[in-house]
Design a protein around this nucleic acid. Structure first.
Lengths: 289, 289
DNA sequence: CCGTATTACGCTAGCCGTAATGATG
DNA sequence: CATCATTACGGCTAGCGTAATACGG
């Protein structure tokens, strides 16, 4: 029988060219490699090497064998990869969301329904990568801004979220009850970059604004607290991040249609029954609100 | 490291379904299989089986792993097959011929040039399978009836051979100096079936003849000697098979164009230099004759 | 003379088989 | 209680490392 260690040693020899190099790379002694290779030739019944007293190299049969050895090792690695990946997926509930708030809402629901499972999510700014990931089974569920009407999907409405802008009370717009995003044109605005679609939306709708991006959420919140720069807040972020409006600031509602989001939870149609508990919980949540 | 024996046992389990059956099939004890499978799960880090106290079966990860195991084993077998096949080919000089006589001529030439190599040939009735086999490297050389003019081939003329018919002296045609094949219409004729193109040619050219086929050459020669039935002989077969025309029979030349054959030796153009010694020997042979 | 491959020799890790145990239908 | 899987234990194969040998640039 051709054992794995021989196959690996042959493949390594094809890359290294000397037995000593193979020995060093595989953390094994020189004589061991010499023996394995001799044994391999015996098993196959074909000479694989051209030898002199102090050199050894592959002949044409050995080169062919080494190519096959590489293929076999790849197949073994692929086996490990595939099985481990399937296992990991089976223990991970993965979803994608167009914004952080619905992801925050979904997380405890899933953790409760699937205790012991890893729950993980990714944020995306656009819907296409979410639907693509759903189709490719990288996501079990995605949260979108629009209902998926395709028959291949099962879709339920999820929470709503409203964007406001947080202004110092001395700001020229601070007295207004509500404003448009375009009113913020030219402002310097603090913003977190991992907020899904909000990020590209506000960039698009506020001409000439300077966005001071802060990749660390904790740092951003600290800077917001200690500066007089405008920043964004939503009804949900205020609650979930425990960041009430400070006394010297005021939250101004935004009038733009895009500033009010209704989210939708979507799964593959074939997964609807498997995920019925999740969608029941979602419906309950919406019903209560 | 995933060892070959584990992979094989897993693949066998996927086919057999119980550890005992695997043990029996692989000539190994039950506990050994049990241990190997447990070890495999440990190495991969993923449970592959659903167990009760006295039953064990693959779970979905195990089924995936078993599919990969099959692939790996196939790759290993393919490695052995390919390397051994390449080795065998390197030690075998293989040629195909449209008739036995040129094969007989070629054999000693090749044995002398390649001492220690196995020399083997196949007879074919048609040229197409010969050229196909040459292109597919199943033959190193082929012997045809027509020169190969294609640039992909290297071609040299080889020996000539003339067909006669062997008739009892009492036969109605025995007094003729030469006859046409069609003159034998309706005769019962003894014939060997492994004579390449001659076989189909005479069958085509002699209407209504009854051919008494004899697959064993030795038997055929014996029957020819002890019967009064017509049979075929060529200038070369007479010499090579040591079968001189018996006193009560006579060899009548055949006038048909097809009864005189000129053979041509052909190899792939890329092999011409490798086989130059062979073609020199062929040219010498022709030159002497 | 250092680097490389092979041979010799004793060790031990690990796989195997037997036997015992436990569970199930 | 017959069948199947697992656990325990002792034996032995076989691959390993060290050391020695031999060759070559």
């Amino acid at each position: 029988m051709l054992e794995t260690y021989m196959i690996q040693q042959l493949a390594t020899f094809a890359e290294e060219g000397t037995l000593s190099a193979v020995a060093e790379r595989l953390h094994i002694s020189q004589p061991a490699i010499s023996r394995s290779m001799a044994k391999m030739e015996k098993i196959i019944g074909v000479p694989l090497f051209e030898r002199t007293k102090n050199s050894i190299r592959l002949n044409s049969f050995g080169m062919l064998a080494a190519r096959h050895a590489g293929i076999i090792l790849c197949a073994q690695e692929e086996m490990l990869r595939a099985v481990r990946e399937k296992y990991r997926r089976s223990r991970t509930f993965s979803y994608g969301a167009i914004a952080p708030a619905p992801a925050w809402e979904l997380s405890p629901i899933l953790s409760q329904i699937y205790p012991g499972m890893t729950v993980s999510y990714e944020l995306q700014e656009k819907e296409e990568p979410l639907l693509k990931g759903l189709a490719e089974k990288r996501y079990d569920i995605v949260v979108l801004l629009n209902p998926a009407k395709d028959e291949n999907y099962f879709c339920r409405p999820f929470i709503r979220e409203c964007l406001s802008v947080l202004l110092p009370k001395k700001h020229r717009l601070a007295a207004r009850k509500a404003i448009w995003l375009k009113d913020l044109a030219g402002e310097k605005i603090l913003i977190h970059d991992k907020i899904g679609f909000w990020y590209s939306m506000v960039r698009r709708k506020i001409p000439g604004a300077v966005f001071l991006e802060q990749p660390e959420l904790a740092s951003l919140l600290e800077i917001v607290k200690n500066s007089h720069l405008p920043s964004f807040i939503t009804d949900i972020s205020e609650q979930k991040l425990h960041t009430p409006v400070p006394k010297d600031k005021t939250a101004i509602l935004l009038l733009d249609e895009e500033a009010s989001a209704r989210f939708y939870c979507v799964c593959r149609a074939g997964d609807a029954s498997r995920l019925s508990a999740v969608f029941s919980a979602i419906d309950n949540l919406i019903g209560r609100k």
